[in-house]
């Protein structure tokens, strides 16, 4: 698909800053680094589990910068009472992974 990513550039900047603050190794964050950040949202663990499933697009157990932005996007939307989707909407797939 072609079209703008649902993560807006200004939001991406914010998420990138959080990503960098978590000291990624080789441009990746492991689950144990991401988990406390997501838990901080106070969302139910089953919801956060779904957020992880949707954002770890290549299923390598780590999030790169774009995957992390997807995770944060879903968490922020969930905090605004938008349901976390069961499958990742195509427009939420980072352009680098389409």
């Amino acid at each position: 698909i072609d079209g703008p990513w649902m993560v807006k550039p200004e939001e991406k900047l914010k998420f990138d800053a959080i990503f960098d603050s978590l000291t990624p190794v080789g441009g990746m964050l492991t689950g144990d680094k991401v988990k406390p950040v997501l838990l901080n949202s106070k969302l139910p663990v089953d919801v956060l589990g779904r957020v992880w499933e949707l954002s770890d697009i290549d299923r390598d157990g780590m999030l790169d910068k774009d995957e992390f932005a997807v995770a944060m996007y879903l968490v922020y939307r969930a905090l605004e009472n938008e349901p976390v989707p069961m499958i990742l909407p195509p427009a939420l797939v980072p352009p680098s992974k389409r």
Binding site: G31, G49, W52
Partner: peptide, 13 residues
Amino acid sequence: QYPAGGSSTNPFL
């Protein structure tokens, strides 16, 4: 629950 193929790499499982 989780989408089919839910992975053991999920730190929330």
